[in-house]
């Protein structure tokens, strides 16, 4: 066994992953090789120092918990609207209403296939072909709604991002305070239309 092999076995030994026969070979080599004995001593010491490195970190504050809880999106209440419909005897009225909504929403959905961007404040946003880019470092205040396009978020959006018939790409630098929704199909679009009539009651399934 040469010293290089010996060092490799030392590491396996420290990993608790060395067969007995190999361990005996290593021992034999170390008995005859002062350099490897010293190397092993140093490696063992290093391990001990690392395991003993228990300098106490201050625990995190309750403030951090509050900060986390304040940035997570509001919980979904998916079944609220169904419950509402079930609880009300005027179910036929609701059914007719949904039917009317479906017809009008479908025609709206079919009507436009062009890129459409909606938002309260869009000066930070870059538009390239069918791409809507929120660059790194830029902050968009308010909701961002995009139809028939690709949203690429590198910066910050202080609101919800909704993409209808398109995709949302979030870089690791992205920060979206509201919810992110992708609506790809006619049915979802209808649902979105209905739920936006009842703010707080329902969101897309």
């Amino acid at each position: 066994m040469d010293c290089k092999q010996a060092v490799s076995l030392m590491h396996n030994l420290l990993d608790d992953d060395l067969e007995r026969s190999c361990a005996l070979d290593l021992k034999e080599h170390m008995l005859a090789c002062p350099a490897c004995r010293e190397r092993f001593r140093q490696l063992e010491e290093t391990e001990q120092l690392l395991y003993g490195f228990n300098h106490r970190l201050q625990p995190t504050t309750d403030e951090l918990t509050e900060r986390i809880m304040s940035v997570i999106p509001k919980p979904k209440k998916q079944s609220a609207m169904f419950k509402w419909v079930r609880r009300h005897p005027a179910i036929t009225v609701a059914a007719v209403f949904v039917l009317v909504m479906m017809t009008s929403a479908l025609s709206m959905w079919n009507a436009d296939k062009q890129l459409l961007v909606k938002g309260q404040q869009l000066d930070g946003v870059v538009i390239q072909d069918n791409k809507v880019i929120v660059p790194n470092g830029k902050v968009v205040k308010g909701d961002l709604t995009i139809h028939n396009g690709l949203a690429e978020v590198y910066g910050e959006v202080e609101g919800n991002v909704t993409v209808v018939d398109g995709k949302v790409y979030q870089a690791s630098t992205a920060h979206i305070t509201g919810s992110v929704q992708q609506i790809d199909e006619a049915m979802s679009w209808i649902w979105y239309q209905i739920s936006s009539l009842f703010p707080g009651n329902a969101t897309a399934p």
């Binding site: 420290l14 490696l43 010491e45 120092l49």
Partner: peptide, 20 residues
Amino acid sequence: IKTRVHRGREFLRKKLERKI
């Protein structure tokens, strides 16, 4: 992971040489 532990250990051994 094993390879990285081995190299990391060697790296730290060198860094801590004065202490060990």
